[in-house]
Design a protein around this nucleic acid. Structure first.
Lengths: 201, 201
DNA sequence: AATTTTATTAATCAAACGATTAAATATTTT
DNA sequence: AAAATATTTAATCGTTTGATTAATAAAATT
């Protein structure tokens, strides 16, 4: 075996990954130090390079996970052949709000890292591109013969759903405290589909 | 005079500020190097510290500018005593889209820096807090006796307006190219007020 | 049991980076 | 014009940071 791991003891390797997820997501690539990750996972600094070759490589793995998580939450819904347009709208708002309630800084992490180094991460997005653009969801929108581009509806759905999390550091203070803000967000699981459906006429 | 500048030749100081705006906004605080800023402004590295004491202090100035720009675009509109609710909605969508078309990475810059160091920048937001919360706009929303919290309307308005810029690196690829995406955004100046007004009933 | 491979540690390297210093040049004040 | 102050430069200092190395411990293989 090339490297005698991966059978049972993902232990050390997985401890590093877990710490990497946390530190990278909290601070972003540039501000995260390999020593932070080592300390967070309770391992020796050299082990990070032993298992992952470099900070950069480790980050790429974390980034890939995050992008997959972000796209993975909607792509299956967008492409479900058996659900109606309305059901998809409910599904997207619902599952995204659930996901982002658990991982509130997922979108801002991914978006700001992509913006910091677009060349590097363009491929990550492009690879998942068509599964949105040519989705059943988009076809169903087109069938409705809207007076505006279907992309507007998609942008509105994502904007109303995701933006509260992106703007959370600012918005939660406006609303009051974080608990009140979270309560508002929970309400939006049902409100957003209602508003979006209004736009379909 | 304590320091013999600020009469005519803001030249050097302003050259550094200009470069700092660009480099910080492009890369974020952590990834921006003082040497980048020096090179970008064509000055000697030591001048940065001579004029601004430290990278940190220089950044604080840039950050303050950015936050002011972001809030400054809506606070006057939110608090205009003479305009109707509907006019304010049109004004916010319009002026924000204009501002962000010129400075597309303003929101993601501010939001990600606040998220990276919330303690440091909490005060910046708090100071401008009440001018949103207790704005004429919010009062006008309350008068409408909506079935949902007025904050939902504010979040929707900001979400639909700002999110396209936050998500631009991803969304513009979905839509096609950047030009098409910009065209869509331009349409939204009139569409967003229409959608928001629908929500007021 | 001996040997080879894998895992882990402490120490350290080299480059990057923010910051400072001391000297030189320019500008302002007297 | 001389003196004082402000501006600019080149060189360099001290840390931080990603990465490596050499030695050791543990595990797997023979």
């Amino acid at each position: 075996m090339a490297k005698g791991k991966k059978d049972l003891d993902l232990s050390t390797e997985e401890k590093i990954m877990e710490a990497a997820r946390k530190v990278f997501t909290e601070k972003g690539y540039a501000a995260a130090r390999t020593r932070d990750i080592a300390e967070e996972s309770g391992i020796n600094l050299a082990l990070l390079n032993y298992y992952f070759r470099s900070k950069e490589k480790l980050f790429e793995l974390v980034m890939l996970e995050r992008v997959n998580k972000l796209f993975g939450a909607i792509i299956p819904i967008l492409n479900d052949e058996s659900s109606t347009l309305e059901e998809k709208i409910e599904g997207i708002a619902g599952s995204y709000i659930d996901l982002l309630t658990e991982h509130p800084d997922l979108p801002i992490f991914v978006l700001s890292e992509i913006r910091n180094r677009p060349e590097k991460f363009a491929a990550l997005v492009n690879a998942r591109d068509h599964r949105v653009t040519k989705s059943v969801f988009m076809k169903q929108l087109i069938e409705r013969k809207l007076s505006v581009s279907p992309f507007h509806i998609l942008i509105n759905l994502l904007g109303m759903t995701v933006f509260p999390f992106v703007g959370k550091p600012v918005l939660s203070k406006l609303v009051g405290n974080e608990a009140e803000f979270d309560a508002l967000i929970k309400q939006r699981k049902e409100l957003i589909p209602m508003w979006i459906k209004m736009m379909l006429n």
